[in-house]
Amino acid sequence: MNHNTPDAPLSPLPRTGFDRFQEAIRYARTEAMITGLAALSLYRFAAAPPPGMIERIDVLVARTRRLRSTHQIRVVRAVEPPHPVEIDALPVAPVPRALADAVSALDDAGVVRRLLTEAVSGGHCEPGAVVRELNRARLLTRPHVVDAVDSLLAEGRSIAEDRLYAMVREFALPDPLWNVDLRLPGGPHLGGVDAFWPDQSVAVELDTRAPRQDDDALWTEYTRKREHLERLGITVVHLTPRKLRESMDQQATVVRTALMAAGDRQPAAYVVVLPR
Protein backbone atom coordinates (compact mmCIF):
# COMPACT_ATOMS: atom_id res chain seq x y z
CA MET A 1 0.00 0.00 0.00
CA ASN A 2 1.33 3.44 -0.92
CA HIS A 3 1.14 6.07 1.79
CA ASN A 4 1.47 9.80 1.54
CA THR A 5 3.12 11.59 4.43
CA PRO A 6 1.75 14.80 6.01
CA ASP A 7 3.85 17.94 5.43
CA ALA A 8 4.31 18.73 9.12
CA PRO A 9 5.06 16.21 11.91
CA LEU A 10 2.28 15.68 14.41
CA SER A 11 2.64 15.13 18.14
CA PRO A 12 2.46 11.47 19.28
CA LEU A 13 -1.02 10.03 19.60
CA PRO A 14 -2.13 9.31 23.19
CA ARG A 15 -1.82 5.63 23.89
CA THR A 16 -5.50 5.07 24.64
CA GLY A 17 -6.52 6.46 21.24
CA PHE A 18 -3.68 4.72 19.43
CA ASP A 19 -4.66 1.28 20.77
CA ARG A 20 -8.30 1.69 19.71
CA PHE A 21 -7.35 2.89 16.23
CA GLN A 22 -4.93 0.00 15.83
CA GLU A 23 -7.67 -2.40 16.87
CA ALA A 24 -10.03 -0.94 14.27
CA ILE A 25 -7.45 -1.38 11.50
CA ARG A 26 -6.72 -4.96 12.63
CA TYR A 27 -10.45 -5.68 12.51
CA ALA A 28 -10.73 -4.39 8.93
CA ARG A 29 -7.43 -6.03 7.95
CA THR A 30 -5.88 -5.16 4.59
CA GLU A 31 -6.55 -2.10 2.41
CA ALA A 32 -8.44 -0.23 5.12
CA MET A 33 -7.98 3.25 6.58
CA ILE A 34 -9.33 5.43 9.38
CA THR A 35 -11.85 8.03 8.17
CA GLY A 36 -14.54 10.38 9.52
CA LEU A 37 -14.18 12.17 12.85
CA ALA A 38 -11.56 9.65 13.96
CA ALA A 39 -9.36 10.62 11.01
CA LEU A 40 -9.85 14.33 11.70
CA SER A 41 -8.80 13.76 15.29
CA LEU A 42 -5.60 12.17 13.96
CA TYR A 43 -5.02 15.28 11.85
CA ARG A 44 -5.37 17.21 15.14
CA PHE A 45 -8.45 19.19 14.11
CA ALA A 46 -9.41 21.46 17.00
CA ALA A 47 -13.08 21.05 16.01
CA ALA A 48 -12.88 17.24 16.26
CA PRO A 49 -12.88 15.31 19.54
CA PRO A 50 -9.44 14.17 20.76
CA PRO A 51 -8.56 10.56 19.82
CA GLY A 52 -9.37 9.19 23.25
CA MET A 53 -12.88 10.70 23.10
CA ILE A 54 -13.98 9.20 19.78
CA GLU A 55 -16.97 7.00 20.54
CA ARG A 56 -17.11 5.11 17.25
CA ILE A 57 -14.27 4.74 14.77
CA ASP A 58 -15.04 4.95 11.06
CA VAL A 59 -13.02 2.58 8.85
CA LEU A 60 -13.01 3.04 5.06
CA VAL A 61 -12.81 -0.12 2.94
CA ALA A 62 -13.46 -1.14 -0.65
CA ARG A 63 -17.10 -1.70 -1.51
CA THR A 64 -16.45 -5.35 -2.29
CA ARG A 65 -15.24 -6.16 1.24
CA ARG A 66 -17.56 -8.34 3.33
CA LEU A 67 -17.26 -6.63 6.67
CA ARG A 68 -19.87 -5.67 9.25
CA SER A 69 -20.01 -2.66 11.53
CA THR A 70 -19.74 -3.26 15.26
CA HIS A 71 -20.65 -1.27 18.35
CA GLN A 72 -17.28 0.56 18.24
CA ILE A 73 -16.43 0.41 14.53
CA ARG A 74 -18.48 1.77 11.62
CA VAL A 75 -17.60 0.34 8.23
CA VAL A 76 -17.69 2.93 5.40
CA ARG A 77 -17.43 1.69 1.83
CA ALA A 78 -15.90 3.26 -1.27
CA VAL A 79 -15.98 2.20 -4.91
CA GLU A 80 -12.37 3.39 -5.27
CA PRO A 81 -10.76 4.06 -1.88
CA PRO A 82 -8.24 6.95 -1.97
CA HIS A 83 -4.56 6.57 -1.21
CA PRO A 84 -4.17 6.87 2.55
CA VAL A 85 -1.97 9.23 4.51
CA GLU A 86 0.17 7.67 7.22
CA ILE A 87 -0.10 9.16 10.71
CA ASP A 88 1.42 7.42 13.74
CA ALA A 89 1.91 4.33 11.51
CA LEU A 90 -1.85 4.26 10.89
CA PRO A 91 -3.42 4.53 7.40
CA VAL A 92 -5.74 7.54 7.38
CA ALA A 93 -8.09 8.85 4.68
CA PRO A 94 -7.13 12.18 3.06
CA VAL A 95 -8.77 15.18 4.72
CA PRO A 96 -11.47 15.83 2.05
CA ARG A 97 -12.70 12.24 2.18
CA ALA A 98 -12.51 12.11 5.99
CA LEU A 99 -14.54 15.34 6.16
CA ALA A 100 -17.26 13.99 3.89
CA ASP A 101 -17.53 10.79 5.94
CA ALA A 102 -17.67 12.81 9.16
CA VAL A 103 -20.28 15.26 7.83
CA SER A 104 -22.50 12.41 6.61
CA ALA A 105 -23.08 11.43 10.25
CA LEU A 106 -23.42 14.96 11.70
CA ASP A 107 -26.58 17.03 12.13
CA ASP A 108 -25.01 19.86 14.13
CA ALA A 109 -24.65 22.80 11.72
CA GLY A 110 -22.11 24.55 13.95
CA VAL A 111 -19.82 21.53 14.13
CA VAL A 112 -20.03 20.97 10.35
CA ARG A 113 -19.18 24.62 9.67
CA ARG A 114 -16.22 24.59 12.09
CA LEU A 115 -14.80 21.38 10.59
CA LEU A 116 -15.04 22.63 6.99
CA THR A 117 -13.62 26.05 7.85
CA GLU A 118 -10.71 24.55 9.78
CA ALA A 119 -9.85 22.29 6.84
CA VAL A 120 -9.20 25.39 4.70
CA SER A 121 -7.93 27.91 7.25
CA GLY A 122 -5.63 25.27 8.73
CA GLY A 123 -4.05 24.60 5.32
CA HIS A 124 -5.18 20.97 5.16
CA CYS A 125 -6.78 21.25 1.70
CA GLU A 126 -8.42 23.57 -0.82
CA PRO A 127 -12.17 24.29 -0.77
CA GLY A 128 -12.70 22.65 -4.16
CA ALA A 129 -11.41 19.29 -2.93
CA VAL A 130 -13.80 19.39 0.02
CA VAL A 131 -16.82 20.31 -2.09
CA ARG A 132 -16.01 17.57 -4.63
CA GLU A 133 -16.18 14.96 -1.86
CA LEU A 134 -19.36 16.42 -0.38
CA ASN A 135 -20.94 16.40 -3.83
CA ARG A 136 -19.81 12.82 -4.44
CA ALA A 137 -21.40 11.80 -1.14
CA ARG A 138 -24.63 13.62 -2.14
CA LEU A 139 -24.46 15.83 0.93
CA LEU A 140 -25.08 19.14 -0.85
CA THR A 141 -28.83 18.61 -0.60
CA ARG A 142 -28.71 19.13 3.17
CA PRO A 143 -29.37 22.77 4.09
CA HIS A 144 -26.92 22.89 7.01
CA VAL A 145 -24.17 21.47 4.77
CA VAL A 146 -24.90 24.01 2.00
CA ASP A 147 -24.70 26.82 4.55
CA ALA A 148 -21.36 25.48 5.79
CA VAL A 149 -20.06 25.24 2.22
CA ASP A 150 -20.94 28.90 1.61
CA SER A 151 -18.85 29.83 4.67
CA LEU A 152 -16.07 27.54 3.44
CA LEU A 153 -15.93 29.18 0.01
CA ALA A 154 -15.84 32.63 1.59
CA GLU A 155 -12.95 31.50 3.80
CA GLY A 156 -11.14 30.02 0.80
CA ARG A 157 -11.49 33.21 -1.23
CA SER A 158 -10.23 35.34 1.64
CA ILE A 159 -7.12 33.16 2.02
CA ALA A 160 -6.50 33.17 -1.75
CA GLU A 161 -6.78 36.98 -1.86
CA ASP A 162 -4.26 37.28 0.98
CA ARG A 163 -1.85 35.07 -0.98
CA LEU A 164 -2.34 37.19 -4.11
CA TYR A 165 -1.51 40.36 -2.14
CA ALA A 166 1.55 38.61 -0.70
CA MET A 167 2.71 37.51 -4.18
CA VAL A 168 2.61 41.07 -5.54
CA ARG A 169 4.47 42.37 -2.48
CA GLU A 170 7.09 39.63 -2.08
CA PHE A 171 8.01 39.44 -5.76
CA ALA A 172 8.04 43.22 -6.25
CA LEU A 173 5.38 43.33 -8.95
CA PRO A 174 3.92 46.74 -9.81
CA ASP A 175 0.95 47.67 -7.64
CA PRO A 176 -2.32 46.89 -9.44
CA LEU A 177 -5.80 48.23 -8.90
CA TRP A 178 -7.39 45.71 -6.54
CA ASN A 179 -10.88 44.22 -6.85
CA VAL A 180 -12.31 46.33 -9.65
CA ASP A 181 -15.12 46.14 -12.17
CA LEU A 182 -14.43 46.78 -15.85
CA ARG A 183 -16.90 48.46 -18.17
CA LEU A 184 -16.86 49.81 -21.72
CA PRO A 185 -17.47 53.59 -21.88
CA GLY A 186 -21.22 53.99 -22.10
CA GLY A 187 -21.44 50.27 -22.73
CA PRO A 188 -22.00 46.99 -20.96
CA HIS A 189 -20.44 45.74 -17.76
CA LEU A 190 -17.50 43.42 -18.55
CA GLY A 191 -17.13 41.80 -15.15
CA GLY A 192 -14.97 42.05 -12.07
CA VAL A 193 -11.32 41.08 -11.68
CA ASP A 194 -9.17 40.65 -8.60
CA ALA A 195 -6.24 42.75 -9.86
CA PHE A 196 -5.83 45.01 -12.89
CA TRP A 197 -2.84 46.83 -14.38
CA PRO A 198 -4.45 49.45 -16.65
CA ASP A 199 -1.23 50.62 -18.32
CA GLN A 200 -0.44 47.08 -19.45
CA SER A 201 -4.09 45.90 -19.81
CA VAL A 202 -3.41 42.81 -17.70
CA ALA A 203 -5.95 41.36 -15.30
CA VAL A 204 -5.68 38.60 -12.70
CA GLU A 205 -8.70 36.55 -11.81
CA LEU A 206 -8.76 34.09 -8.92
CA ASP A 207 -10.70 30.95 -9.76
CA THR A 208 -12.23 30.04 -6.42
CA ARG A 209 -15.13 28.19 -7.97
CA ALA A 210 -15.94 24.84 -6.44
CA PRO A 211 -17.61 21.92 -8.23
CA ARG A 212 -21.26 22.12 -7.26
CA GLN A 213 -24.41 21.17 -9.03
CA ASP A 214 -24.50 24.48 -10.98
CA ASP A 215 -20.81 24.30 -11.92
CA ASP A 216 -21.43 24.08 -15.68
CA ALA A 217 -23.33 27.37 -15.67
CA LEU A 218 -20.63 29.07 -13.59
CA TRP A 219 -17.90 27.81 -15.89
CA THR A 220 -19.77 29.01 -18.98
CA GLU A 221 -20.21 32.47 -17.46
CA TYR A 222 -16.54 32.62 -16.44
CA THR A 223 -15.34 31.54 -19.90
CA ARG A 224 -17.58 34.05 -21.65
CA LYS A 225 -16.22 36.91 -19.54
CA ARG A 226 -12.61 35.88 -20.09
CA GLU A 227 -13.04 35.55 -23.86
CA HIS A 228 -14.76 38.95 -24.05
CA LEU A 229 -11.92 40.68 -22.17
CA GLU A 230 -9.28 39.03 -24.34
CA ARG A 231 -11.09 40.12 -27.54
CA LEU A 232 -10.74 43.67 -26.22
CA GLY A 233 -6.99 43.17 -25.88
CA ILE A 234 -6.92 42.58 -22.10
CA THR A 235 -4.70 39.70 -21.02
CA VAL A 236 -6.40 37.63 -18.31
CA VAL A 237 -4.13 35.60 -16.03
CA HIS A 238 -6.03 32.77 -14.40
CA LEU A 239 -4.80 31.75 -10.94
CA THR A 240 -6.16 29.11 -8.57
CA PRO A 241 -5.73 29.02 -4.78
CA ARG A 242 -3.73 25.82 -5.12
CA LYS A 243 -1.27 27.37 -7.59
CA LEU A 244 -0.76 30.33 -5.28
CA ARG A 245 -0.16 28.04 -2.32
CA GLU A 246 2.13 25.53 -4.00
CA SER A 247 4.06 27.61 -6.56
CA MET A 248 3.72 31.32 -5.80
CA ASP A 249 7.07 32.09 -7.45
CA GLN A 250 5.96 30.50 -10.73
CA GLN A 251 2.67 32.42 -10.69
CA ALA A 252 4.56 35.66 -10.07
CA THR A 253 6.68 34.88 -13.13
CA VAL A 254 3.54 34.31 -15.22
CA VAL A 255 2.11 37.69 -14.18
CA ARG A 256 5.46 39.48 -14.70
CA THR A 257 5.79 37.96 -18.18
CA ALA A 258 2.29 39.14 -19.12
CA LEU A 259 3.12 42.66 -17.91
CA MET A 260 6.42 42.76 -19.83
CA ALA A 261 4.76 41.50 -23.04
CA ALA A 262 2.26 44.35 -23.04
CA GLY A 263 4.46 46.49 -25.29
CA ASP A 264 4.45 43.80 -28.00
CA ARG A 265 0.66 43.64 -28.25
CA GLN A 266 -1.83 45.82 -30.07
CA PRO A 267 -3.25 48.54 -27.78
CA ALA A 268 -6.25 47.32 -25.84
CA ALA A 269 -9.68 48.94 -25.96
CA TYR A 270 -10.23 51.68 -23.43
CA VAL A 271 -12.22 50.48 -20.42
CA VAL A 272 -13.68 52.26 -17.43
CA VAL A 273 -12.39 50.93 -14.09
CA LEU A 274 -14.74 51.09 -11.11
CA PRO A 275 -14.30 49.89 -7.51
CA ARG A 276 -16.04 46.59 -6.85
Rank of each mutant, 00 (worst) to 15 (best):
H238I: 11
V131H: 00
N4E: 13
V112W: 02
G191Y: 04
M167E: 06
P51N: 01
A102M: 02
P198G: 09
S158D: 12
R66S: 13
T16I: 13
P143L: 12
P143W: 10
A98Y: 05
V103K: 00
Q200M: 12
A32C: 08
D108I: 01
T117D: 10
E31Y: 11
L90M: 05
A210D: 05
D181Y: 08
R68V: 06
V149D: 00
S69W: 05
V271Q: 05
L184M: 13
T64D: 12
E230V: 04
R97D: 04
H144V: 01
L182M: 09
P174T: 07
R113H: 07
A258L: 08
V204I: 13
V236W: 07
V204S: 06
A166I: 03
R183D: 03
Y270W: 13
G233Q: 06
H144E: 09
Q200Y: 06
L274T: 11
G123N: 08
P49L: 14
P94F: 05
R114W: 00
L40K: 00
P94G: 02
R44G: 06
T253A: 15
F196P: 03
L232T: 04
I34V: 11
L90N: 03
L182V: 09
M1S: 13
P188L: 14
V193A: 08
T30N: 12
E230K: 05
A100T: 02
R226I: 15
R183E: 15
D7Y: 10
V59C: 06
H238N: 14
V202G: 04
P96L: 01
T5I: 15
D216Q: 14
I54R: 03
V75F: 01
V103I: 12
L229F: 07
N179K: 11
P14H: 09
L106V: 12
M167L: 15
G122N: 06
T223H: 11
W219R: 15
M1H: 12
L115M: 08
M167G: 05
H238R: 15
P96G: 06
E221R: 15
K243F: 14
R113A: 14
A203L: 07
E155D: 14
P9I: 08
A109H: 09
I87F: 08
G52C: 10
